[in-house]
Design a protein around this nucleic acid. Structure first.
Ligand SMILES: [Mn+2]
Ligand SMILES: [Mn+2]
Ligand SMILES: [Mn+2]
Ligand SMILES: [Mn+2]
Lengths: 220, 220
DNA sequence: GCATTTTTTTAGCTTTGTCTAAAAATAATA
DNA sequence: TATTATTTTTAGACAAAGCTAAAAAAATGC
């Protein structure tokens, strides 16, 4: 596994995420994701194609090759392990870890990452609930349900939060909805699509559809 | 304090080290240190001059400005804190930490470094015995003596090892000469300049001049 | 003090990664 | 289907960081 530049790695990782819910990624989409220009994406796709990391034909969109997927999973492993370290050991807030990890993920010394993994006790999920790939690139994808679609009176465990902004962190922390918290939806109001949530023996409270759309739970 | 490129930081740090024992650093010296070409150094010195990090006049050598010194101490702080982390927490060997730290030192997020410092318990020296500058850039320079010049029967504590190669680590580990070890020189042989060393109640043993030249001690 | 050697700088070229503007291909729609 | 709109690619430029080869300055040695 040779070494890729920071820019190459950022492109590979972004394609990986985009291709999860569609079968081909377009130039414009990736440009938007990486806050760059479509022309720059075309250049990079040509390069990644010669390195056999991406299947690309002009005007036809692209996808990672097997090779590309492997590389992407390794970058994601690095990213999430550093996020876990920052959150768990250095006591960073939830919403601060991503940006720092965005840089640290490019320190691509495998011995470093494996020792970090060991030091952290082989965590399986990062601070946002996303699974951490193991040294072989295996990733555990648990089928999760968005909270806004959780059936009534069905216990679920908060698994993942898709929006990592400090605003979301603030409200979830305030309502004591953390990763691992067990909850049920008691009612859904058609009027404004708000949901009534109950955690353990506490009094039920209401959250907005907008918030419920960012929270993913695992049904038990 | 703005942000500097990896290459700029490597140049600044190298100048800092070279200027410790001479009053002006030359183009060729720095090129050799950084394994690059003199022409490239000239280019970089022009750039660092416009950024007011270096005092430079063509053909006259250079030195860091006040500003440049501050930046250098911050890089060295980052480098040594990461070395401490790698050695103390991730259990890397002594001779492996430098190369990894050479990359990590360029992740220049001050909050990260200050939290890392706190997490590590504010260590004062890195795994080679070199002092770690504090958040204000203050560095504690203890006057140290090279072991080969330590007077006979004078107790000293191993403080620092200037050669960080695995060969040196191997021999020092084997002879149980670690940072913090207290020892005395019992004899010096003129024939081959070897030294007889005694640690605590153990039997005395002999080391070469070459080895004694890499070890620095603090006289108690 | 002049010639020779060494050091340093300059000039010009290369690679990587990005950009803008224009051209080409594809998609949408009337 | 022809026209229009959108997307994507190409062409050409630029900045950063490096290199080689040649020129200029400084240092050395007789
Ligand atoms: Mn993240
Ligand atoms: Mn990144
Ligand atoms: Mn070091
Ligand atoms: Mn470095």
């Amino acid at each position: 596994m040779s070494k890729y530049s920071v820019s190459e790695e950022n492109h590979i990782k972004a394609i990986f995420h985009l291709q999860q819910d569609q079968d081909t990624v377009t130039t414009n989409e990736l440009a938007k994701e990486l806050q760059t220009k479509p022309a720059s994406i075309t250049d990079m796709m040509k390069k990644l194609k010669t390195k056999k990391l991406v299947n690309y034909q002009r005007y036809k969109g692209f996808r990672l090759t097997e090779q590309g997927n492997k590389v992407a999973l390794n970058i994601i492993r690095r990213h999430r392990l550093w996020e876990y370290f920052l959150s768990e050991k250095l006591k960073f807030n939830w919403d601060e870890v991503h940006d720092v990890a965005e840089v640290l993920e490019h320190v691509s010394n495998n011995k470093l990452i494996d020792k970090l993994d060991e030091f952290l006790g082989y965590p399986r999920v990062d601070p946002h609930g996303d699974p951490i790939p193991d040294a072989q690139g295996k990733i555990k994808s648990s089928k999760k349900t968005v909270l806004s679609a959780l059936p009534l009176n069905t216990p679920g465990i908060i698994n993942n939060v898709s929006d990592q902004s400090s605003e979301v962190l603030e409200i979830l922390t305030h309502k004591e909805m953390n990763i691992g918290t067990r909850l049920e939806v008691k009612k859904k109001f058609d009027f404004d699509e708000s949901l009534e949530i109950k955690i353990g023996r506490q009094a039920a409270f209401t959250i907005s559809k907008k918030l419920a759309d960012t929270v993913y739970v695992q049904i038990i």
